[in-house]
């Protein structure tokens, strides 16, 4: 009896073996590769601030961004459309991991430059890693002469520095989030009570609504604010629309500026009081 059971057992193993599907063999033979998670965010910006994404190798991107005036200015200002802050920028990928950017904002006639480096990638499969990290650094120069002529500013006094660590995770194909510790240094401040160094923490999310449209949100909390202005945390909501070679972003934000040193530390709008700036980012890749 025992022998018969043994035989049946062997036969069943055998027949399993015999009938093994060719595709199953291929599955077993598939080398285990690491798989880098891509498209955590679609654009290089979540909305106002940077996302972990870089420009790809040798790609040049021209970005035009607009923020209009506050929508609660009413009909006389056509709900803010009469005023606008525009930023032109050229951004270039030295390789897939390093991007350089140069931009000019009409608001306070500010020039900005940045470097962004992708330090760690989120991976699944072999050697999996749960999140991606990029480093961001920027220098901005404010060239608007809004000071007293007797108090002329030097070039160095008009400089602003920003350092960010961008940490992001794509949880599923349709949801990603990012946490962004931020440090802003200002060489000069309006009054002595204003801090030269400001620390902030950013939160951003992307939720896919369809294959080419996503809903994004972004919030920056500052831990020490300027005393000379009624500074508020920056909040923004927006829609990403992807069309072939570029990403189009429609944005509602309480900040009128589009560079880190400004929207994180100098926003004064009360989003829920109607101080909302409508805006968009358009990028064209060459």
């Amino acid at each position: 009896m025992k022998k018969i059971i043994l035989i049946i057992f062997i036969i069943s193993i055998n027949s399993q073996f015999f009938g093994q599907d060719l595709l199953d063999i291929l599955d077993n033979e598939t080398p285990k590769t690491e798989n880098i998670v891509t498209a955590t965010f679609k654009g290089t910006r979540i909305l106002n601030g940077h996302s972990i994404e870089n420009r790809k190798d040798k790609e040049l991107e021209f970005i035009i961004s607009h923020r209009f005036g506050r929508v609660n200015l009413g009909f006389d200002e056509l709900f803010g459309l009469d005023q606008s802050n525009i930023r032109f920028a050229l951004e270039y990928g030295f390789n897939d991991n390093l991007t350089i950017g140069l931009g000019r904002s009409s608001f306070e006639k500010t020039y900005d430059s940045f470097l962004k480096y992708s330090l760690l990638k989120q991976k699944n499969g072999e050697n999996s890693f749960p999140f991606a990290v990029s480093l961001f650094g920027s220098v901005a120069v404010k060239t608007l002469k809004d000071y007293d002529p007797s108090d002329k500013r030097t070039f160095a006094e008009s400089l602003f520095y920003v350092g960010q660590v961008l940490i992001a995770r794509k949880v599923s194909p349709s949801f990603s989030y990012q946490i962004t510790p931020t440090y802003v240094h200002r060489n000069s401040v309006r009054i002595n009570a204003d801090p030269h160094d400001i620390f902030a923490l950013g939160f951003g999310t992307r939720m896919k609504l369809s294959k080419r449209v996503s809903f994004n949100s972004e919030y920056y909390v500052t831990f020490n604010e300027s005393k000379s202005i009624d500074a508020r945390n920056s909040l923004a909501f927006g829609i990403d629309i992807e069309t072939g070679g570029h990403v189009f972003q429609l944005i509602l934000s309480n900040a009128i500026t589009m560079i880190e040193k400004s929207f994180i530390t100098e926003s004064t709008g009360n989003f829920f009081g109607g101080d909302i700036h409508f805006g968009f980012n358009i990028s064209r890749t060459f």
């Binding site: 063999i25 598939t30 590769t33 891509t38 498209a39 080419r212």
Partner: peptide, 26 residues
């Protein structure tokens, strides 16, 4: 004479990285 083939879609390499991203994502 039976045959089977298995293809990992992410192993397709494009000239432009953005095209590859769109291929896989969209």
């Amino acid at each position: 004479g039976k045959m089977a083939i298995s293809i990992l879609m992410k192993s397709f390499m494009f000239k432009k990285a953005l095209m590859q991203e769109h291929f896989n994502e969209n």
